[in-house]
């Protein structure tokens, strides 16, 4: 029995008809272009202007497009490494911010939000200038560094929220039962914040995998990621191939986001 958790029972009434129509219109406006894109990735005709029948052959040709596959490999490499690094740094930052008192704690805490506020193009230019001034060659490494820079804040904020929501003095309880600080972290703190870490990592991965603007400024030769590749393919017009690869990216991102929202909302993962 949980007297503190009050479940509000309220009959859900559908809104008036005009409100539902309005909502439908808004969603159509938002999602019709995407639906058209998905539809035309199955178009037999090379032109986007006419429907020539259903085919999945564009998806097959993607696999044989070597430069496209190289871009996909780059994107996955960048996203995986950037996620790994930013998750570790972000988690440690979140722990420091919520467990220790130090000078400038508030400032550092607020700075974590900055990359979310700064316009991407500003961030891109700033990073480019920074790399040049520091004498860092633009390559896949500079892209990874740039991605870490903008995703670390998301991880910090997500994990910190999770830490703040931990009920009771579980860490003291662990120490009381003889767990060293290391054991306390790995046996109690870490399992409790793992859903937060996972959700931060997924967010970082999604952001990195989809990023165009910052990558555009910081990528060197041989560091073409999938979004950059798709952009360059557009020079020859929006082909069904572009539609197909975009559809795959879309499906992939939607899956990641679905996973993320599950982690965020699952009452069991909150472990009250």
């Amino acid at each position: 029995m949980w007297p503190s958790r009050v479940i509000e029972m309220r009959e859900e009434k559908p809104g008036p008809i005009w409100l539902r129509l309005y909502a439908l219109t808004v969603y159509l406006f938002l999602y019709t272009p995407i639906l058209v894109l998905i539809l035309f990735s199955f178009n037999k005709s090379r032109r986007n202007s006419s429907w020539g029948g259903f085919t999945t052959s564009w998806y097959a040709t993607l696999w044989h497009n070597e430069s496209l596959m190289r871009a996909l490999a780059n994107s996955l490499k960048v996203a995986c490494l950037a996620t790994l690094i930013s998750t570790v740094i972000g988690t440690m930052a979140a722990l420091a911010l919520s467990r220790y008192q130090f000078r400038g704690r508030e400032t550092v805490g607020s700075l974590a939000y900055l990359p979310m506020m700064v316009p991407e193009i500003v961030m891109g230019i700033a990073l480019l200038t920074f790399f040049i001034k520091m004498g860092i060659q633009l390559s896949i490494v500079s892209v990874i560094l740039a991605h870490v820079a903008f995703s670390v804040g998301y991880v910090t904020v997500t994990v910190r929220t999770r830490l703040a929501g931990l009920a009771g003095n579980l860490e003291e309880a662990a120490a009381d039962l003889g767990a060293t600080p290391m054991e306390t972290f790995w046996l109690v703190t870490f399992p409790r914040i793992l859903p937060g870490i996972m959700s931060g990592a997924l967010l970082a991965f999604t952001l990195s995998f989809d990023d165009f603007v910052i990558t555009f400024f910081t990528a060197g030769i041989g560091a073409t990621t999938l979004p950059l590749k798709i952009y360059s393919m557009l020079k020859f017009g929006v082909t069904p191939e572009v539609n197909a690869i975009s559809t795959i990216m879309l499906a992939f991102t939607v899956c990641l986001l679905a996973l993320w929202s599950r982690l965020e909302s699952d009452p069991k993962s909150l472990g009250r």
Binding site: A167, G168, N169, L170, E172, A173, A174, D176, V188, P191, R192, G271, R272
Partner: peptide, 11 residues
């Protein structure tokens, strides 16, 4: 120690 909030490990 037996804590006021019990502090059992929920996981």
């Amino acid at each position: 120690t037996v804590f006021q909030s019990y502090s059992l490990f929920p996981h």
